[in-house]
Design a protein around this nucleic acid. Structure first.
Lengths: 188, 188
DNA sequence: GTCTATACTTCGATAGAC
DNA sequence: GTCTATCGAAGTATAGAC
């Protein structure tokens, strides 16, 4: 049993999770100190106690999410089919939450800074992973560069996820097939 | 000279433009009746007079933007290099404003409905255009389908535009080169 | 760390005169 | 079509007791 109640998590974590859920379900504009606290079963003032401003809260939510993504990416090289996993991860990463962070980053300096920093680091790591696969499989003579392959996977996954989310599916089956075929060359 | 002052545009148009500018510069959360009116040099009540709710305003702004996009796409077939133009258009379409509409569409039913309807129509038209190019150039034996080519152009343009906006450029030069090479086969 | 209380701002939307 | 006036709700953030 925990000390006071709250069973498993401390208040800070509860607030972070509540904020993320709200962002996903109702958009960043719905992330207010009152709503976050209500969803966490706490008082609104605690939001300011733990994060001071709402910007600080957004940054904390973003870091938490980005950190999980980075961990999953780091585990890619140990998978049986690393690039297939990378493709899957890219599709999963591009959900509603990322859309919200993109919009947020467009207008909030603090979020934008985190966003740029992480995005850059993430992409570099990703290219390194593709390079490693290239070397492993001896694909030095492959016409496409690792940087392009990484960009291709991310962009196509992003495009498909975006469109799927709003109900467009034209060309997706074709895309999935072409990508699969490409990935086979690496992961076979 | 116009009737009262307002020189060129009527109030409705002024409000629409003000809302779009605000959305681009400060995000959809900054689009309030008061701020929109202030930027348009009008009273906040006029926003409700012309659009009743803020949702109606968002839908109107979206329609206006989408309509312009559709017009540009329709003119593509008459261009000297249609697919190059399609690539350029796709990149331009993916700016801050679209990010905001995506986020909005995730959580506002009225916007979502417009978004889906237009997106689907836009994509269908686009695929038709690519098909027409295929036929013109006699590329019936080309390994990729028109649907995939359309999805590829949109996704890659979207990915690059998104990343450029936040300062990531790794792999972009490669991507641009590969796409150019592909487009040459159609537009040559 | 959590509470009560509160100051101050801004929001969407409407009623009714002109 | 535009104005004045206004309601009630919701927002961020802080001060100070416990």
């Amino acid at each position: 049993m925990a000390e006071h109640d709250h069973t498993v998590q401390d208040s800070r974590t509860r607030l972070l999770e509540a904020a993320e859920v709200l962002m996903r379900e109702r958009g960043y504009a719905a992330v207010t100190s009152r709503k976050v606290a209500a969803r966490a079963g706490l008082k609104p003032q605690l939001v300011h106690y733990y994060f001071r401003t709402m910007d600080d809260l957004f940054v904390a939510v973003y870091r938490r999410w980005a950190s999980g993504l980075m961990d999953r990416q780091a585990a890619l090289l140990d998978a049986e089919k690393p690039l297939h996993e990378m493709w899957t991860l890219a599709k999963e990463a591009r959900g509603v939450l990322l859309s919200e962070f993109v919009a947020l980053a467009n207008h909030r300096k603090a979020v934008q800074q985190e966003f740029i920093e992480f995005g850059d680091r993430y992409r570099r790591t990703q290219v390194e992973i593709v390079k490693t696969i290239f070397d492993r499989k001896g694909l030095g003579g492959f016409p496409w560069t690792p940087a392009f392959v990484a960009a291709l996977l991310n962009s196509m996954a992003g495009g498909m996820a975006l469109e799927s989310g709003i109900g467009i599916s034209e060309g997706h089956a074709d895309t999935q097939a072409v990508i699969e075929q490409l990935l086979e060359q690496f992961d076979a």
